[in-house]
Amino acid sequence: MRLSIQNTPFSPAAELEGFATGHRETGAEVSFTGRVRDDTGALQALEIEHYPGMTEAAISAIMAEAATRWQLLDCLVIHRFGRLAPGAPIMMVATAARHRAEAFAAAEYLMDYLKSRAPFWKREITAEGAQWVGAKASDEDALTRW
């Protein structure tokens, strides 16, 4: 299990090197990378603010809960903060389990909870100025399925 909250860039491929190694019973590995999306072509940067201390505590609790619901052999969460360029990886999760159903479900659970229970706030920077990204009701609704 590994969690990193960082303001430096990361390479999703490099982070998966060594993930879940040492667990011969691993039969399934799922990874997801979230990138800075530019819907209009006008995005200059995405700024991410977070709550140091609570961020680590909240995500650790989410990871621990995932590990009790599914038999995870390994679990990884990386989330950036600071100023990011369009296309840059914002965050990634990876899960390893014996079978794919568990690995997929745990990865989706981690993503759903990271969206609305980890204290990050995004602000889009364009030539017109800066705009805070609002939370979506659908993100909150997604938690009800768990």
Binding site: G34, Y51, M54, H79, I90, M91, M111, L114, K115, S116, R117, A118, P119, F120, W121, K122, W132, V133, G134, A135, E140
Partner: peptide, 10 residues
């Protein structure tokens, strides 16, 4: 105590 808008992680 901390006050903030709904979180937008991920």
């Amino acid at each position: 105590i901390a006050f903030f808008p709904p979180m937008t992680g991920g």
